[in-house]
Amino acid sequence: MRIIISPILLLLVAFTGLAQFNDSTHYYVSCKSAGSINRTNANSAYLLNNAFKVSLDRKQFTLNLANSWVYGEQQNKLTNNDFNSTLDCNVYNSLPHFFYWGLGNYTSSYSLKVIDQYQTGAGLAYNVFDRAKIKINVSDGILYESSDIRLTDSTHDKYTTFRNSLRLSFKLNIHELITFNGVNFLQNSFSSSSDYIIKSNLTLGVKLRKWLSLTTTYSYNRYNRTGRENTLFSYGLTVERYF
């Protein structure tokens, strides 16, 4: 029941609250719901991909809260129960094209064998392009991580480490109709060259209405410490509002 109701709840949240607006503060709310169901006489599989984001934008800083949940089963066996929540902040200064960033992140992923992962850190970012139709940003910084991962069904590995976090993000806007954006991470541990994390999220959106888009999402994640990776390709609807 939770799986069926969750997209409806996301849609309702997108149209409630955060009604405040003034000349210097802007709010943004978006939610995405996508998935697939495949059922035959002998086989069954389904996947649900939900995401919800709230942003506050001011001249001096921006604050973003993003949550995603992927749930899937195949042949009545669990394949995905992956949750991610990120709170990040960008602080702007007088230096052109540069700004500071900080974040806190929580991840729990059945498919990647991550029971709990907490990350917090900060760094510096540079806007290669910052225009209405094209934005490209490169950032780097240091993360502190505390993780509990599953090596086998009965063996856990609890550890802490510092990572270098390199990020490339971009957004293209074509005639206010088509958007293509992506966020890509490479996070290497300072203590072991074989301990690295790769994250890539690409989204293509086509506007149906000012507040509604048809979106296609490609996501790839690899946690080399667990030797696990997942690839997700989904399509669905995105509801968004600006305040």
Rank of each mutant, 00 (worst) to 15 (best):
G104N: 00
F83Q: 07
S85R: 06
T120Q: 15
N76Q: 15
N105Y: 10
C89S: 13
G123S: 04
G104C: 04
A34F: 01
F52A: 11
N41C: 11
S33T: 15
R58H: 07
V114I: 15
D82R: 00
F52V: 08
A42F: 15
Q75Y: 11
N50M: 07
S108H: 08
K77E: 15
F61V: 03
S109R: 02
A122P: 04
K113I: 07
V91C: 03
E73L: 08
N90R: 04
Y106N: 01
N50G: 02
F99K: 00
Y110I: 04
L78Q: 06
L78G: 04
D88S: 12
L63C: 05
A66M: 11
L63S: 05
N81R: 09
Q119M: 13
N64M: 05
F61P: 00
G121H: 00
N41K: 12
Q60E: 15
K113M: 11
F61I: 03
L78A: 04
Y46D: 13
N49K: 08
Q74F: 08
P96F: 03
A51Q: 09
R39D: 14
V70F: 04
N90L: 03
F83N: 07
L124M: 10
L112K: 03
S109D: 02
T40G: 06
G35Q: 01
A45G: 11
V114Y: 00
L48D: 12
T107M: 10
N50L: 12
T120D: 14
G35N: 01
L124S: 05
T40V: 04
D82K: 01
Y106L: 04
I115W: 09
Y92M: 03
S55N: 14
N41Y: 12
S108I: 01
P96W: 01
N93K: 09
L95R: 09
Y92K: 06
K59R: 11
A122D: 02
I115A: 13
D88A: 06
V70P: 03
S68I: 03
Y46G: 12
G123C: 00
G72I: 02
K77Y: 10
S36P: 10
K77N: 14
S85Y: 06
N90H: 08
Q75N: 14
A51E: 10
T62I: 03
I37H: 12
Q74P: 09
G121Q: 01
K53M: 09
A45P: 07
Y110E: 05
A42E: 15
N41P: 10
R39I: 15
L103K: 15
T86C: 09
R39L: 15
I37Q: 11
T79A: 05
S85E: 14
L56I: 14
A34C: 06
K77T: 12
S68N: 08
L65N: 08
I37F: 15
R39P: 09
K53A: 13
I37K: 10
C89E: 10
V114R: 05
N38G: 12
K59V: 10
G121M: 01
D116T: 12
F52S: 10
S111T: 04
V54H: 02
Q75S: 13
S33Y: 13
N127C: 02
G35V: 01
Y71K: 11
Y106S: 03
Q75D: 15
G121P: 02
S94P: 03
Q119P: 00
P96L: 02
N41D: 13
V70D: 07
T79F: 00
A34N: 06
L124P: 04
N64T: 08
V114G: 00
K113A: 13
L124I: 14
E73D: 09
S94E: 11
Q60G: 10
